[in-house]
Write a protein that binds this DNA or RNA. Sequence first.
DNA 1: GCTTGACCTGGAGTCGGCTCCAGGTGAGAT
DNA 2: ATCTCACCTGGAGCCGACTCCAGGTCAAGC
Lengths: 119, 119
Amino acid sequence: MTVYTPAEAVEETGFTLDTLRYYEKIGLLEPVERNAAGQRRFSEEDLSWLGMIRCLRDTGMPIAEMLRFAELVRAGEHTIPDRIRVLEEHDRRVQAQIANLAERQRYINHKISYYRSVL
Amino acid sequence: MTVYTPAEAVEETGFTLDTLRYYEKIGLLEPVERNAAGQRRFSEEDLSWLGMIRCLRDTGMPIAEMLRFAELVRAGEHTIPDRIRVLEEHDRRVQAQIANLAERQRYINHKISYYRSVL
DNA sequence: GCTTGACCTGGAGTCGGCTCCAGGTGAGAT
DNA sequence: ATCTCACCTGGAGCCGACTCCAGGTCAAGC
């Protein structure tokens, strides 16, 4: 059972140490194991959960909703249907974001073309 | 030369009136024309610029950078090559955002499949 | 002619999401 | 042994982008 020092967790997840502590403080991350000196030792499981968090965060899910998802995960297997619902709903929003960005991108490209045409 | 009342501008742009005033205050919008009573009367040009702002904002450009772009526009025709550079650079970031979202979406879909498989 | 309601201003407050700080502890390299 | 450096805590501060408020003005319909 490998464990990771805070520096390693930072390296692996791409979050800053302050952010990891913040996530633990607000309960987005379960209380992380400590060594004798009280320093954090992250487990594989912590890192894999942080991978999920990164994905949700980077697709624009607000912390409040990630917290609700975290509670579902903690509540046990019987919440899996609910988790699926949350993720499906989020997936739809991500799809909408992509479509929206693509649409806006067309506008930007038209503008670029226009600018080129008046040079 | 049509003009638009604040309420109409809100309707057309989708920004709140407070946001429009805020944008004017910080100089993202040129000082808007006023009627005798000091109320704003937005021009077609204002609305079309606000369309650009909405596009840039919704694709994640920070206000500070939009301000820089606004200054280029104000500075006159000779800044068109610079404006093209700004938009091209932004276009690349939008492209990267889309790619990133699509990648994350795959992760979400894998997770959904996984959850379905354990039901 | 009175009320209603859209509008005005300057400035303070909010919100989400971190980010930084002071002051302190323990562990490992020299 | 000593020094350095990663780490700890609670709490304050910051940043971007609005959002709200108090107190006031005008125009227009009844």
